[in-house]
Structures are given as C-alpha cells and as structure tokens.
C-alpha cells in the first residue's frame, strides 16, 4: 500500500504541473466560446505566450530578479491578448470563418515566434532561462496527512494561480452581469441585442480574455516544463486545452477538472515505465487518451456535451 502512495506522491505533483497551463488556456477557451466565437487559435496563442514569456525572462532577468517569471507571464498575457485581436477582428467584424481564422492564428503564432527566435538568437531555440517559476509549500495544508504532500508540497506558484483563475472565471461567468451578458451573446445574440447588450463588444472582450489566458498558459508551460523556447515547446497543448474545454462542457470548473485529468494522463505517459503495474501498458495509449476521451465525450457517451447555440455564427445586425 505504501508503494502505491509513493507513486501517487510522485505522480500527482507532475500531473498538476502539466495541468496548470491547460487550465489557463482551457478557461480562455471557455470565455471565447461562451460568447459564440470558436477559438481554434488557442494553440497559436499559447505558442506566442511561451515565446514572449521565455524571451522576456531572458532579457529582463537582471532587472526584475526573483519576480522575472511573474512579470514574464504578465507580458506574455498582454502580447497574446493583442495577438488575439487579429482573430477577433476577423471573426467578429469581418465575418470570417472562425475555424479558418483560428488555423491562420495557429500557423502565424508559430511562424512569428520561430522567425523572431532565429533573428534574435541565430538558431532554432532560445537559451535556457535562469529564473523559473518558484515552488511553494503551502503552510498548514501541507501538514495534512496523505493529501498534504500530494497537493500542497512544493507546488508551482502558477498552479495555485491557475486554480484561483478557474474559480474567478466561474464567478465572473455565472455570478456577474457581465457573465450573464457573455452567455446570452453566445446563446442567442439577437435576443441579447434586443435587450440592449452590445453583442460585438462583448465578443471582442471575450476573445481578448481568451488570448490573454492562453498567453499565460503558454508562458507558464514554457517556464515550468521546458525552460527554453523552440519549435516543439508547445506541441498540442493548445488543442488539448480545447479538448479540456469541451470535455468540461464549456464550464470553467469542468474545464479545470478535465485539464487536471489530462495532466494526469500526460504524467502517467512520461513516467509509466517507473510504475510497476503500468510498465506493460504501452505509453501510446496514455498519449492518445485525452484525445480519444474528447471524441467519446463529444459523441455523447459520457453525457451530452452541447456547446453554446450561436457558436461559430457571426452576428449580423438586422438579419434573422
């Protein structure tokens, strides 16, 4: 039994570390899609966040010292939010196909990032950062038996922030007037417009929030997992976050739960060889688990997952 606990002590912290970036990004997706704008560009926005986070960290480590990773996350958030404006303008004002625009954002994100890295460093990846996101022991909670060492010992600060953001997002979306407007715009924009809600303004805000959160997710991933930036730094995390959002049924807490579960699958995949009863399971099954589960969830085998009604439709005033 103690062997099993040891495995959990080992694997749960890794799972949480993998899940945190997914939580940020998936909640970004919740904001955008709840307002009716499909955001497949999460991957590209995460790439942008990871790139900006790492480069800022490398350049300003002398200025900000211990605070560098946090400032980097903030800057990554701002840059990705601005970058997501492209998607907002295309899909809200220019009535572009939101999926195509999202694909363009993905391609553009990685292209700009790699172009800039080559320009700045003359090679395919950046140097390694010195100041990483710090780990904390949470006072009192870490002393709880079993759960303490699993969840509250040497957690990344960013993981705590991720959980806080998930709860905050739940509060905003379900308990504030803005959240009500956000949801109404995504379900029935014409009705919302009749009630005097500025549909397009709400959608712009939502897409920008999603960009900012995806940027944070990317910066957190890069500054906890890889510590540098290259072409494979963000490799599907954005799509996995999209999957988490759907698996979590477009609900912030649900998305967090799904992200934690996907993080667990990833942690198992990388460490399965060290776990006695997992050795015989080919790691490929764990790698594809999040994606397969999303398909199963969408197919309605785990309760029907229905997106917002007006998802993907540009709102054209005056048309029925």
């Amino acid at each position: 039994m103690s062997g099993f606990l040891d495995i959990l002590y080992f694997i749960v912290p890794i799972s949480i570390a993998y899940a945190a970036p997914l939580i940020f990004t998936a909640i970004g997706g919740v904001f955008s899609e709840r307002s009716g704008v499909i955001n497949i560009g999460l991957e590209g926005l995460m790439v942008m966040g990871a790139f900006v986070g790492i480069v800022f960290n490398l350049f300003f480590v002398d200025t900000f010292g211990d605070w560098t990773p946090w400032v980097s996350i903030l800057v990554a958030m701002l840059v990705s939010a601005i970058f997501s404006l492209m998607h907002a303008v295309a899909s809200i004002s220019f009535r572009a196909d939101q999926v195509v625009s999202g694909v363009a954002i993905n391609l553009l994100g990685i292209a700009i990032a790699l172009f800039s890295v080559k320009m700045i460093y003359g090679k395919g990846q950046t140097d390694f950062i010195q100041e990483k996101i710090p780990r904390f022991n949470i006072p009192f909670l870490q002393d709880i038996p079993v759960i303490g060492p699993m969840f509250f010992k040497s957690v990344y600060g960013s993981s705590i922030l991720a959980v806080a953001i998930a709860i905050l997002a739940w509060f905003i979306i379900f308990k504030t007037p803005f959240g009500l407007r956000l949801r109404s715009v995504g379900e029935h924009p014409m009705a919302a417009d009749t009630m005097g809600i500025k549909v397009n303004r709400i959608r712009y805000i939502a897409v920008i929030i999603s960009g900012g959160l995806a940027g944070m997710g990317g910066a957190v991933y890069a500054q906890t997992m890889t510590n540098d930036f290259g072409h494979a730094t963000i490799n599907g995390q954005g799509f996995m976050a999209l999957a988490a959002m759907i698996f979590g049924k477009w609900h912030p807490i649900g998305a967090m739960g799904a992200a934690l579960f996907f993080g667990f699958a990833q942690a198992l995949a990388i460490s399965s060889s060290g776990i006695p009863f997992m050795q015989n399971v080919p790691s490929v099954f764990l790698y594809i688990l999040p994606y397969a589960l999303t398909i199963i969830a969408l197919a309605g085998f785990i309760g029907k997952a229905n997106g917002p009604k007006a998802l993907g439709d540009p709102y054209i005033k005056g048309s029925r």
């Binding site: 295309a90 004002s93 220019f94 572009a96 625009s101 363009a104």
Partner: peptide, 9 residues
Amino acid sequence: IFFVACGYI
C-alpha cells in the same frame, strides 16, 4: 490564409 478568411471584407 488569414486574408482569404477575411474574404468578406
């Protein structure tokens, strides 16, 4: 791709 997507405008 982005500009083609914005074909409407």
